[in-house]
């Protein structure tokens, strides 16, 4: 209930500002509210971009009783439109490349990408195969890299915690992520050809 109260206050403040103040402030406060929500309960979507399944079962493992990521407010969603964090595994193959971009583009801002596993970080053992692009960052910008073949669920939990910590620090610092944001919009521009 405390959380709901706080959110309500933020929303009320924001509504007042929309009414009585300049648009810039309202926007920044709305951003703050969304960032606060993301930090407290990031929803993830999992996409296999050409992985061997090893990291994928470890991600599902992290959601099941022994590790139980859900107790930290992390939920796995089925659609990219509900997700804040894209947890991506595997070296990107030529056939999933476009789909990965599309999924990334469908996610609402602010969005974050976790490259899970050595293949997702660099292409790993599949580097140099004719059908492999390389790591996830060859297609979309990545925020957190988790090396390991396969990654352990503990590593996934640690990565998510680090992401949340970084988010918090970033929000306190205020607007330090300007560079990265522009990076994201760059990709969005590249994806335009899907639409038209």
């Amino acid at each position: 209930m405390v959380q709901a109260d706080t959110l309500w206050k933020v929303m009320a403040e924001q509504a007042m500002i929309i009414n009585y103040s300049r648009g810039d402030n309202a926007l920044s406060l709305l951003k703050k509210a969304i960032a606060w929500g993301t930090r407290k309960s990031p929803w993830i979507i999992h996409f296999n971009a050409g992985s061997c399944n090893g990291c994928d079962i470890e991600i599902v493992d992290a959601l099941t009783p022994r590790f139980d990521l859900e107790r930290l407010g992390i939920l796995q969603r089925g659609t990219p439109r509900h997700a804040d964090v894209l947890v991506c595994t595997g070296a990107v193959t030529l056939q999933t490349k476009d789909r990965l971009k599309q999924i990334y583009d469908q996610m609402p801002e602010p969005k974050f990408v976790i490259a899970t596993g050595t293949c997702a970080c660099s292409g790993g053992v599949f580097n140099g195969c004719y059908c492999v692009m390389g790591g996830i960052d060859s297609v979309i910008p990545v925020d957190v890299y988790i090396p390991g073949c396969a990654v352990r669920p503990e590593a996934i939990i640690s990565a998510v915690a680090k992401l949340l910590g970084a988010l918090e620090a970033q929000q306190k610092g205020g607007g330090k992520d300007a560079d990265r944001r522009s990076d994201h919009s760059q990709v969005s521009r590249e994806i335009q050809y899907f639409k038209g």
């Binding site: 992985s51 070296a91 999933t96 059908c131």
Partner: peptide
């Protein structure tokens, strides 16, 4: 299918 084709046999 084929989304996961990485070209292992050639590798």
């Amino acid at each position: 299918i084929g989304y996961n084709h990485r070209g292992l046999e050639k590798a």
